[in-house]
């Protein structure tokens, strides 16, 4: 019993690590694929059994690291609901693409108050049986999909800026470095759902909404 909270903590920690790591790579991939930053500023890394492109630009890295730190904290506190990557036209500010990663936390596993007795009665959801490898594969699939999205995503020939939006619990406070923002939906956009992956505790679903240029 006493180990349960501990193991849960570990599980949470482990899962969060996965998720945050995934976010990092996913955001990098999107930035690379969509040409937000020049391809030369990316370098290839081997991860999840595939090669992923991560940025080598120091400022960008710093920014991402900071944001993901915050995300990590929120996840540990089970506050994060969504992480959204918004691509907007640099000049007009209009959103052209919106990559949304929904976070579903298995609350039973993360309750800080040790009130997990209720869940501890063997209600093992299938999520708990995930092995590392499976998680890896799922993440791999998503990353691949991001690459594959070129088949339907429009060409972004304008300069784009990106933003990271985090949807959190209403109760949690807004940290200093963030500010409240509107959801930045894509106007008249098409929504495509992408794959999802899940760990023992979290389930992440990915989707993208974009505008088609149907002339």
């Amino acid at each position: 019993m006493s180990t349960e909270p501990a193991s849960k903590a570990i599980a949470l920690r482990g899962s969060t690590d996965h998720v945050v790591e995934f976010f990092g790579y996913a955001v990098n991939s999107v930035l690379y694929q969509r040409g937000v930053y020049p391809p030369e500023s990316f370098e290839r890394k081997s991860k999840y059994g595939i090669g992923v492109m991560v940025t080598s630009e120091p400022k960008l890295r710093e920014y991402l690291v900071n944001v993901l730190e915050r995300v990590d904290q929120w996840l540990m506190e089970s506050d994060l609901r969504k992480l959204v990557l918004v691509l907007a036209d640099a000049r007009t500010g209009a959103t052209v693409e919106r990559w949304a990663f929904d976070v579903q936390t298995d609350g039973s596993k993360t309750r800080r108050d040790g009130e997990n007795a209720g869940d501890a009665n063997g209600e093992e959801t299938m999520k708990t049986e995930k092995t590392e490898k499976e998680i890896m594969q799922e993440i791999q699939a998503i990353i691949r999909q991001i690459t594959a999205s070129v088949s339907f995503l429009p060409l972004l020939d304008r300069e784009c800026a990106f933003e990271l939006l985090a949807y959190t619990d209403k109760e949690s406070a807004t940290p200093d470095e963030c500010e409240e923002s509107d959801p930045k939906y894509v106007r008249d956009g098409v929504e495509m759902r992408l794959r999802s992956f899940s760990t023992k505790i979290h389930k992440i679903e990915a989707g993208v909404s974009y505008k088609t240029d149907d002339a």
Binding site: V150, S151, F152, L153, P154, L155, V190, E191, M192, Y210, K211, T212, D213, D214, A215
Partner: peptide, 10 residues
């Protein structure tokens, strides 16, 4: 799939 400049409806 031929990528279209304007994108496709997924």
């Amino acid at each position: 799939v031929q990528p279209l400049r304007g994108g496709r409806d997924g």
